[in-house]
């Protein structure tokens, strides 16, 4: 579905990504893990066209590097950005309807979206209860559900999730990830950026590890979970006898 080769990206004069190659296949869930500032979000933004980059990004057999962000979204490559970015002054349902622009294009009337709405409300029943509420007034978890729901309204061919667990209580994260797995199993490939490395590796098929703008490891998620280097750097295991307290550990 998505094939990235030798991607280089700049922020001003600083090179943030130094030649990234990455692939997401049909129906796959791929995790991208790495520390703060490694370039994970820059990579997603380069794919979605909101940051300019060099190299090659092929989506559904088409080169999209030079495409504008809005047209990439309308091709079905949808990003749920970090910090959720719900439209704060619109109601839940209005947020969802605006999400249909990606799948059905810009138009004067929304038309019939009951099928999409039903599907999203089935996945996230909480959104149905709150459909007349303004998005800014919802909790973080509900906003994350809305952000993902809005992307689903656009009939995604590939979904990119940026830090879906950020700022959420562990129990909410658990519920959310069940839904994310459900969405993936319904046939939508997912590329997920996640700081909670253990969780990301548990739910994904494959993973890439990004360090200072380079991919330093890749492979099946199950293998990476056993890799001592990964364990030490990202999973807070006491391999060297000292606990790394700077990494978040999944609380269970």
């Amino acid at each position: 579905m998505l094939k990235i080769e030798n991607l280089v990206s700049h922020y001003g004069s600083i090179e943030a990504l130094h030649g990234i190659s990455l692939q997401v296949g049909k129906g796959e869930m791929v995790a991208l893990i790495g520390a703060n500032g490694a370039g994970k979000t820059t990579l997603l933004n380069s794919i979605s066209g909101t940051v300019t980059a060099r190299g090659s990004i092929e989506f559904a057999g088409k080169e999209i590097l030079r495409e504008k962000a809005a047209s990439i979204a309308r091709m079905g490559l949808l990003q749920v950005p970090e910090g959720r970015h719900v439209f704060p002054g619109l109601t839940v349902e209005e947020n969802l309807l605006v999400g249909t622009v990606a799948g059905k294009g810009l138009r004067l009337r929304p038309g019939d979206n009951s099928k999409e709405l039903e599907m999203v409300y089935e996945t996230f029943p909480r959104l149905k209860e709150r459909r007349q509420q303004l998005a800014w007034s919802m909790s973080g978890g509900e906003q994350q559900m809305l952000a993902i729901g809005r992307a689903l309204m656009g009939q995604p061919k590939l979904l990119m999730l940026d830090e879906p667990s950020m700022g959420l209580a562990p129990i909410v994260v658990e519920e959310l990830f069940e839904k994310i797995v459900e969405i993936n199993q319904s046939g939508v490939p997912i590329l997920m950026v996640e700081q909670n490395a253990r969780l990301a590796l548990k739910v994904s098929n494959r993973a890439y590890i990004l360090e200072r703008g380079r991919i330093t490891a890749e492979g099946a998620s199950a293998d990476l979970l056993q890799d001592p280097k990964v364990l030490e750097a990202y999973l807070g295991k006491m391999v060297s006898g000292k606990k790394d307290s700077s990494k978040r550990e999944e609380k269970r």
């Binding site: 066209g49 809005a70 979204a73 970015h85 309807l97 294009g105």
Partner: peptide, 19 residues
């Protein structure tokens, strides 16, 4: 709704496909 969405968050509007 589309006009309001763009006014509230231009970055996000382009990510849902609004020019």
């Amino acid at each position: 709704n589309i006009l309001q969405a763009t006014a509230q968050d231009q970055y996000m509007s382009s990510l849902v496909g609004i020019p």
